[in-house]
Design a protein around this nucleic acid. Structure first.
Lengths: 143, 143
DNA sequence: CTTTCTTATGAGAATGATTCTCCTTTAATA
DNA sequence: TATTAAAGGAGAATCATTCTCATAAGAAAG
């Protein structure tokens, strides 16, 4: 992804373009396995040694609020970030911190159909996220 | 739930019976809307003013490990506890901290059937949890 | 290209849930 | 009741995240 594409994403969302924001958005796209804020900070400090943690957290919140990234939460306690924006679910390793995206349009359809039929009284559904917990049986990321 | 029932639950799981453990398990059953550790501590300190936070956390972990309670995580950052042990999913309010249990055997079946057919290469599923995010349209808990 | 104004950034302190340390107490069992 | 491994208590420590507030830097206009 070129600098200009990143710049345009920021502009599109009405976010002021700064070197910090460029670096953070680039980092989260490069580090494409749901990095933590710490992963992102480490990555960015290679080229940008003085960036402050507070800035990173603020920028991540701003990006998430504008829909440029998503926040994902582990079973543990750390927020993770995801630049993959299509509707998707997550595979969580029960024995490590690994998280993978899981796309399944058929599943989305099934869920949608189910909740069309079966309304939940007193509740208006906005989003459905399936957490698929288990063990990875190989070392490579299934998509 | 009588004291003896609680005592027996602990014994069944091979946990030493202590007043602290009794109080904590009782509290989490009484406070049945997914209390936080803090909620539990406040409740217990009414009758048991000197219990230490460390003890509460340790006991909660022990109970969860033995399957006497479950841990639930908010979108925010705080662990919640649940004494309701049947397979169920959760409704999360997008505009508050409210969480409700959601039972739906038909949904469980559909999900199970879907993942029987559609295996995920390189992944062995152990559990499926649907996070249903949205808004509560009344003040009462739907079950 | 400078001014102005608003917004973003940086450094470090603060927060807050959870965990750790280490010492004391207690439940279970003989 | 004595023994002993396990549990509890007090408070410090941890660590991700947020706050504070002074400084810097975009954007827009002149």
């Amino acid at each position: 992804m070129k600098n200009n594409e990143i710049r345009n994403k920021l502009i599109e969302k009405g976010l002021k373009v700064t070197p910090q924001r460029m670096a953070i958005l680039e980092a989260i796209i490069k580090l494409n396995n749901h990095p933590t804020a710490e992963n992102i900070i480490d990555y960015i400090r290679k080229n940008h040694p003085n960036i402050s943690t507070a800035t990173v957290y603020k920028v991540l919140d701003a990006l998430a609020e504008k829909g440029l990234i998503k926040k994902v939460k582990t079973e543990k306690d750390v927020m993770r970030y995801d630049a993959f924006l299509e509707k998707h679910h997550h595979l969580y390793a029960s024995d490590s911190d690994r998280i993978e995206d899981y796309l399944d349009d058929e599943l989305n359809e099934i869920l949608e159909k189910h909740f069309e039929k079966k309304c939940i009284p007193g509740f208006k559904i906005e989003d459905l996220k399936l957490q698929i917990i288990g063990k990875f049986t190989d070392k490579n990321a299934p998509k």
